[in-house]
Structure formats: structure tokens, C-alpha cells
Amino acid sequence: MFPATFEYYAPTSLEEALNLLRQNPEAKVLAGGHSLIPAMKLRLATPPALVDLRRIPGLSGIRLEGDQLVIGAMTTYYDVQTSELVRQHVPVLAEATDVVGDLQVRNWGTVGGSLAHSDPAGDYPAIILALGAEVRARGPQGERTIPIDQFFVGMFTTALQPGEILTEVRIPVMGPGTGAAYVKFPHPASRYAVVGVCAVVGREDNICRQARIAVTGATLYATRATAAEQALQGQTLNADTIRAAAERAPEGLTITGDRVFASEEYRTHLVRVLTRRALMAAVEKIR
């Protein structure tokens, strides 16, 4: 576990960080480091330089702006988990954080790191996707806002351009008549999601007005289960309609397995079961 040689930069402003990335196109951005550093120690990643964002002021913190909860990219899981604002306005995010990694991961890992990394089994990508958030990024061309539906484009690949830094995520606060839940089947070793499903349901007069369901773990990157969403749209919300919708969750998803713990077939089964459980729990939480 000895990484290859690399340069380490600790800029104190976003401008400085962007400049460093411009000067070192092969450099990697370091946030919490819980995905990048292990890869470097195994020498599976040998970036010539790291640009550490930790000393840049203003990149972490949680605030309410109108009907959006704004979370800075360098905010740790622990900060989210213990935030009263999060508990009040997007409770599912705080609840789901309980099952992210372990204590050390939650103390070091960051919201922005998790999203920008787009790990195929990460928890936050699915949750933030289901919540219909948007992501702000700063790059050489200035600042832009990326709707979350356009953000995850592949395994470990996002809409972020080279040299761009994710600065914050903006989540719509959950209004009355909405409920959300994240259900995770953790891998016994890594605690990554074998399958994780986040469901956000909007209800009016017991009719499903909106459902956003996002899957992680089974797919190459966090992906919406649109077939299940559509199946539920406009339906009366009950165990039968939810079951029927959940059955369709794998439709259109590229599901891959592994050869040790969970095959493609089994993960497909879990996508159905966990979608049903997430929807049931989400409906239960509607306030």
C-alpha cells in the first residue's frame, strides 16, 4: 500500500485550484479521498498531482435558499447526517447517511466527492438523483448549473468537464404530500450498495402525482427506474400498485453482477424487491 510519487497542492481559493487543474491536466481533485487514495495505494491510480480542496473556504456548509437546500461540495457525510436543516427539509438524506460506509468514511467522505466520483455503487448518487437536485460547478468557462438528470453519464463519469470543480448541490425541499426513502442492501465486506433504491413519491388524494426512483449498485451508474416511475404515475397508491410498479423497475436498466457475491440475475431480483420496499417506505413517510 505505497502509492507512486505525486505532487500535492493545497490551494486556498477556487481560482487557484482551477488554475492548478489547468496547469496539470492529469491532476486529480482530492476531496475526502476515500475512493481515490485506496486506488492510489494499490497503484491502480497514479495521478501525477493531487489538488486538495480542503483548504478552500466556503466549499462546505448547509443552508436554505428559498425552496432549495444548498449543500457545499466539501460538506462531509457526518455534517449532513447531523444537520437539523437536512432532517427538517430533506429527511431522507440524513436518514440514508446512516448507512453510508462506516464512521470513518462518514467523517471524511464528502457530498461533492461522492457525486463527482459517480461510483456505480455509491449511495448519494442515487439519493440525489431521486431527489431531483441540481449541481453547480465552476470551471475555466465560469459557473454553470447541471440538472442531476444530466449529471451522471457513466461509471465513474459525470457531466463535469476536465478542469471543472463541483461546488455545491441544490436539493428541492420536500413539501407536504411527499415522502422519500432509501433502501440499501449492503455488501458485507465493502458496505457499498449491492443494490440501493431511493424512491421519492408525491401524493395527492391518494393518487401518485410524481414518483422518482433511482437505482445504484446494480447499474453502471445511478440510474432512474423510469418504467416503474411511469407505472405508478397517476395510480392509486397501495400495496398492489406499488408491487406492480416495482416489478417493472429493472426495465431499461443495464444491470451487471459480479462473480463472488451477487450475480446479474440476483441483482435484478433485488432491484424489484428493494424498489417495492423503498416505495412502501416512502409512502409511509408522506407528511
Binding site: 494499490l42 491502480l44 455488501h187 453502471l220 443495464t254 451487471t256 463472488v260 446479474e264
Partner: peptide
């Protein structure tokens, strides 16, 4: 090699990608 023994979680997904 290292790829197989430490990247199992992502191997099939990577191959497919």
C-alpha cells in the same frame, strides 16, 4: 493480477462498459 483481485466489484461492469 491486481485488477482481478482488488477490482472484483467493478470488473464485470468495466468489461461490459
Amino acid at each position: 493480477g491486481t485488477l482481478a483481485s482488488v477490482g472484483q466489484r467493478l470488473l464485470d461492469a468495466t468489461a461490459s462498459m
